[in-house]
Structure formats: structure tokens, C-alpha cells
Amino acid sequence: MARYRRGFDTEAARTHLQRDRRLAPWLERIGPIPPDPRWKRGFDPVDALARSILYQQLSGKAAATITGRVEQAIGSGRLHADTLGRVDDATLRACGVSGNKILALRDLARREEDGAIPGPRRLAWMDEQAIVDALVAIRGIGRWTVEMMLMFRLGRPDVLPVDDLGIRKGLQVVDRLEQLPTPRETATRGERWGPWRTYAGLYLWRIADAASGKGGDKPTPRSQE
């Protein structure tokens, strides 16, 4: 069993992706995307998942406000079973947390206490699918959220979230398609980018933003960012 390192060689990834004649001009236009500094920072899976739950279906500003209220209520910047256990559901609702998200946070806390949430050391020995399988069992956590964690926190090099609308819009621009590609079509097209599909995804988001007028140098924030 191999141990997975956090992060990857972005120069090697860029060199590989430049072989794609349709993608290559966009790589030149946008320029190199540097390694994410979070790949070298400490990582707390439970806290990251809790924040993902709080941020779901909200603007970044609104989610940040609610998260700040929760942190104040529990008296900690660390969202875990022990700290979330300091407040009841009514207090969380008063912070602006919806009923479904409260249920998800409680399920996350219960699974943490049961030892079902892999820690950083264990994650380092798990492949991407094993991590997805372990975490989507948590209420409120879907494959997309886990894929964002794999890309932005764990720095896995070969993850392409084909259900993501921005990814598919970026591919539509690159291949000059009349219709948005399906997730299956996106997965098939992305096979040629392996083993650096994560890096391709970072570009597809920026391409989608550039095409929509948001600018390719300031990508739309994603979960885990």
C-alpha cells in the first residue's frame, strides 16, 4: 500500500496538459497556477467537513457570518464533537443554522466519536475512492464536497469533479461545444489529462470564469477555500 503525499508537481502537470491542443492556448492565456499553500498546512478533516456543511447553499459572506456565530457560541474556532456538544440545537438555530444542517453536524459529531472519520495520518494511506466512500456516509456530505477536499486540502493530483457545473462549462468553452457536456462525457474527455486531472480542473474553473466575464485570474471560490 502506497502513502499519498499532499500536493503535486504543478510544472509536470502543466507540461502534460499542454499536449492537449484545445486546452494548451488557455494554459498560455491564464498562465501557470502555482501550488496551493494549503497542501503544506495542518489539516483537520472533521473541522473542514463541519465548515463545508455550514457553507452549503449559502453565499460566502452569509456562511462566514453564521460560522462566526457558531464559533462564538461554542467558545472555540475548532468545530468538533466536543465543542459542538457545548450547545443545544436551539442555540445553533439561533446562530442561523438550518434544521437539516444541525442534523448533519450532529451526525458528523457522532461519527467522529465512533472513530469513523479518518484522521490526516489515515487519509494519507487511503486512495481517492476509499476517502469518498468513507465520507459520503455522513449526512449532508456528498461526493462533490469530498472531491473539493481531495483537491484543495489533500492535494491529490488526479481528481476531476465531473458533476461540477463550472468544470463542465469550462470544457464546453475549451471544446467549443454547443451544449453543456454531460458528466459522463466530461469524464471520458478528462481521461487524456490523467494523472493530472486536478490541475486540469483548476484551469477549467478559470476558463469558465473568464468566459462569463468574471476574469480568469480570480477564480470563483469553491468549497474548502
Rank of each mutant, 00 (worst) to 15 (best):
D175A: 13
T65F: 08
L27P: 15
R19F: 11
I138P: 06
Q72G: 14
L150I: 07
A104Y: 05
V46W: 00
D88N: 13
T220L: 13
L154W: 04
S52A: 14
L92Q: 02
K61W: 10
D114N: 15
L103G: 14
P221T: 07
P120W: 01
V136L: 07
G142I: 01
I33M: 04
L177D: 00
S76W: 05
V70R: 00
V146E: 02
T91N: 13
D36L: 09
Q224D: 14
G68M: 02
D217A: 15
D217H: 14
A208Q: 01
A208P: 06
L49T: 10
W144S: 02
L103Q: 15
P35N: 07
R184K: 05
T220I: 12
G216V: 07
L23P: 10
V87G: 07
D107N: 10
R168Q: 06
D36P: 00
L108Q: 12
A2Q: 15
L58P: 04
R121C: 12
G7W: 04
T67N: 00
G140H: 08
G216E: 05
A24R: 09
A12E: 04
V97Y: 01
R106F: 06
C95P: 09
R19A: 06
V146W: 01
S212L: 11
Q172A: 08
W144H: 04
R111E: 08
G216F: 02
P157D: 09
I207T: 07
E147F: 02
A48T: 10
A109R: 03
L92G: 07
D20A: 05
G99E: 13
K214I: 11
I66G: 00
A208I: 04
A134S: 11
P181M: 02
R93S: 11
W26R: 05
E147L: 02
L160Q: 01
S223G: 13
D44N: 11
E225D: 09
D133A: 13
D163M: 07
K101F: 02
D127M: 02
A94N: 15
D217Y: 15
M126P: 01
P161T: 07
T83R: 06
G201M: 01
F43G: 04
D158C: 13
E113R: 15
R121V: 11
T15A: 11
L105E: 08
F8E: 05
G96L: 08
H80A: 14
G213F: 09
F152R: 01
L23D: 02
P25F: 08
M1I: 14
G96V: 11
R21Q: 13
V162T: 03
E225P: 05
Q129N: 14
R14P: 13
D36Q: 02
P45M: 06
A64W: 01
W39Y: 10
S52Q: 15
G60R: 01
R222M: 10
A12Y: 03
G166T: 03
R78F: 08
R14L: 14
E147I: 03
I207R: 02
G142A: 07
E113T: 12
G85W: 09
E11W: 10
I33W: 02
W144E: 09
H80W: 12
Y55I: 00
A211S: 12
L204V: 07
R14E: 04
G115S: 03
P181T: 01
Q172M: 06
G194M: 14
L23Y: 01
G213K: 00
C95D: 11
